[in-house]
């Protein structure tokens, strides 16, 4: 049984309306203020520490993203923590909000398919996040120019642009998750609580739990412990488990792209380092290669979670 007509009919209308709603909403304003202020604080610390240390670093601009000065984490780490919050904030009431406002059946009685509504909402929220992140990115570049006084090189710009793209997909994962939960739960409060719970679990608890779970799966060999070394099997398991969290994927990808000296993201064996010049930056393409699997993981997570909410939403009853 095939349905007639395009599933994208009305997509642009929904997109424009949702985008306008997001951009003008107080919720979005608060989220933006939160991110801008914490990011500025991190940047300020990074700038003041960079000014004291070095002017010879070829990737001075990228240092802005990654330098952390206690007690503040780096700009990228702060974003890794706050982007999910922003995405959840925009997505947690996407579908159940329409239910509780009782607008869903009225909108779906217009000549559009449900596809357009869900996709329009997703793309609008993603675009909102994209616009905010792009603004933040420009802010960083501008502040870097202003306070460090060193013009950024082409490669630095390219790498920081990759940061922007990966950050948007990272937001996409959380947005898809929030929208999925907004489809599953009829109450927006429940959806918000569950998304925030998952967010806290994956960003705060999982990094602590993963090594413990890895120990259970692959107990470390006491002979390694005697030598004061980590068992590679346990280390590999720990990393694989950590990678279940999008937060970790984002962190790893950013490490590879923004710190050009990063050669690998996993445990390193001595024989792999043979011939390597420690501390020499990798070319742009090589760094991308290192970050590629993580980026693909984030994209795949976004698509899979979105597909789940899509299927659920298609089968959901319209009436409350």
């Amino acid at each position: 049984m095939r349905r007639e007509g395009s599933p994208f009919q009305g997509l642009s209308t929904v997109f424009v309306k949702e985008l306008a709603d997001h951009v003008s909403s107080i919720r979005m304003l608060m989220l933006e203020l939160l991110i801008v202020f914490t990011a500025l604080a991190a940047l300020y610390e990074a700038i003041s520490s960079l000014r004291q240390t070095t002017a010879e670093d070829p990737f001075l601009l990228l240092r802005l993203f990654t330098t952390d000065q206690a007690p503040l984490p780096s700009f990228v780490a702060i974003l890794g923590f706050l982007i999910p919050l922003m995405a959840i904030g925009l997505g947690f009431d996407a579908v159940n909000g329409e239910h509780s406002r009782r607008t869903l059946s009225r909108i779906l009685a217009q000549p559009i398919y449900r596809d357009a509504l869900l996709m329009g909402k997703f793309l609008a929220a993603l675009a909102t996040i994209g616009i905010s992140l792009a603004a933040l990115w420009l802010l960083v570049i501008g502040l870097g120019l202003l306070f460090l006084g060193v013009p950024p090189g082409g490669e630095e710009i390219a790498r920081s642009l990759v940061f922007l793209v990966v950050a948007i997909f990272y937001a996409g994962v959380w947005l898809s998750l929030a929208m999925l939960l907004s489809t599953v739960f009829r109450s927006a409060a429940t959806a918000a609580l569950v998304s925030l719970g998952i967010w806290l679990f994956l960003t705060v608890l999982w990094p602590m739990l993963a090594p413990a779970v890895a120990q259970l799966i692959a107990p470390s060999d006491p002979r390694y412990a005697l030598l004061g070394l980590n068992d590679p099997a346990t280390a590999v398991w720990t990393q694989e488990l950590l990678r279940l969290s999008p937060n970790d994927l984002f962190g790893e990808a950013m490490l590879a792209v923004l710190s050009p000296t990063t050669r690998t993201l996993g445990p390193v064996f001595l024989d792999q380092l043979r011939g390597a010049v420690i501390g020499a930056p990798l070319p742009f393409g090589e760094s991308i290669m290192i970050a590629w699997p993580q980026t693909v993981g984030l994209v795949a997570g976004t698509i899979i979670l979105f597909a789940f909410s899509y299927v659920l939403f298609q089968r959901q009853e319209v009436r409350a």
Partner: peptide
């Protein structure tokens, strides 16, 4: 069921 857009345009 198959032509919902045509129906919804007129109803």
């Amino acid at each position: 069921a198959r032509q919902p857009l045509k129906v919804k345009r007129r109803v």
